[in-house]
């Protein structure tokens, strides 16, 4: 949760951030390594999902906590938001590229994985486009002819 509070948008509110972290934990808890991946229309090769990243991400969290204690004499959960973000910014700035990974499983850092997992949700996409698109959800066909409704005040993931 200490990382979630630092990397997820504060404007969505604390309950939504908590829910996003809980969804992330449930998601990675149900991950199955070496499952057959989708092979596309043009792909002749069968590929499999990668190793479970959770142990590596847990190690990163433990290291973050140790770093916090080394620098600030307290665990990361007790740091204020600005210091937490400073620690994470230093780590993320060293990563190549600028995009959140399309598949969070491939994220090289737990913070990126959490951000990417949240950003892939329909609710996050609605926030980005400021409209109730409902991407990826099954919806009534006839409604496509109208533009999506704008977000209402208080809409949050």
């Amino acid at each position: 949760m200490a990382v979630g509070e630092a990397v997820l948008p504060e404007s969505i509110g604390a309950p939504a951030r908590s829910a996003a972290v809980a969804a992330f934990l449930a998601w990675i808890g149900d991950y199955r390594p070496v499952s057959e991946e989708m092979h596309g229309y043009g792909d002749a090769e069968i590929t499999y999902t990668p190793a479970d990243p959770a142990p590596g991400w847990n190690a990163q969290l433990a290291a973050l906590d140790l770093l916090s204690r080394a620098k600030h004499r307290t665990g990361i959960a007790a740091l204020d938001l600005a210091r937490r973000r400073a620690l994470l910014t230093a780590q993320l700035s060293r990563l190549p590229g600028n995009r959140l990974p399309a598949n969070p499983i491939t994220a090289p850092h737990v913070a990126l994985a959490l951000m990417a997992h949240w950003a892939a949700t329909s609710a996050a996409i609605d926030l980005a486009y400021e409209a109730r698109i409902g991407a990826g959800n099954c919806r009534v066909l006839a409604e496509v002819t109208r533009p999506p409704l704008p977000l209402a005040p208080g809409d949050s993931p």
Partner: peptide
Amino acid sequence: GQEPRFKDASGGVLLGDAMLAEWR
């Protein structure tokens, strides 16, 4: 070109509302 990002055009790390604002 509308994918969410964790860095801005100058390479600065984006977290929280800054990430969402840049995405928007």
